[in-house]
Nucleic acid binder design. Sequence first.
DNA 1: TCATACTCTAACGTTAAGGTTAATGAACAC
DNA 2: GTGTTCATTAACCTTAACGTTAGAGTATGA
Lengths: 153, 153
Amino acid sequence: MEPTHEMQIGELAQICQTTTRTLRYYEDIGLIEPLRRLDGGFRVYGPETVTRIRHIQELKELLGWSLEEVRGVVQAEDAVESLRSQYRQSRTDQERLAVVKQATGIIEGQLARVEERIDRLAQMRQRLQAKLTRYAELEEELAAHIRSQEGSV
Amino acid sequence: MEPTHEMQIGELAQICQTTTRTLRYYEDIGLIEPLRRLDGGFRVYGPETVTRIRHIQELKELLGWSLEEVRGVVQAEDAVESLRSQYRQSRTDQERLAVVKQATGIIEGQLARVEERIDRLAQMRQRLQAKLTRYAELEEELAAHIRSQEGSV
DNA sequence: TCATACTCTAACGTTAAGGTTAATGAACAC
DNA sequence: GTGTTCATTAACCTTAACGTTAGAGTATGA
């Protein structure tokens, strides 16, 4: 499930538990891009796209973000990563600093939302556990009642 | 924000941060129901509907469930609650036991999903914190670089 | 070289979850 | 009794996130 080779869209879809349609859609809205194309026009992806798509799926599923919101996040992250890999861009250090600060803000916002969700889910867990306890008691009462009746029939 | 009185649809919507359209829609698909109607046909709700709607909103937002899935959950819960309030139904104890067991299963499923989400979110938090650390280092490097240049201009 | 499996673009269809508008009635304030 | 505000149903509209189909090209093993 953690490939190291290049692949085409079908395999990528399979690995990420999704469909080719979805991947092309993600490309349309600017979420992913193939490394390159074969002569026939076939998309070629690297293994890092798997990581990227899983990241997108987590943001969607765990945080409930729309693809529009997800794009904002991954684009900011991309901007920072491009600082590392392509340091020699026509940018001043002030501009680089601004990129990092913006991304930091986004990550902090993400972190806050993650923590808020964890809190709310923990509360939910408490309520569910309490409810399970009550149901278990109810079940025991009923079972006892049934046993007492069986004896008298 | 925690009312004790009966209310009409507009107030209910306001309290639950939603719209009257949404509440009528929820009624259409069997999620909620008014206590009764006024002569003019106006819906009247009790304060427990607020609790119910908040519950629905949590299931939707925190667990990412569709309203269809949510309905399954709340209906099972309703069935158990009706055991308490309307014990004298034409049911045998075996049937009552079955209702409780089914609801228990649903709650357990819910609990499992909550815990899985908490785990995944905790992992996400870890990654985000690590990323924040890296960004902070990067920011410090850039700031230091800028300071060193200022001195030489 | 042919069958089969995969890919391409383009276009139309679908579904959930409501938004919006219209035409009408009810409750209350003055 | 007449605004004004809230409610009613019904019908149509919208948006995100894909699904589906059509018609065509491509890559590969037998």
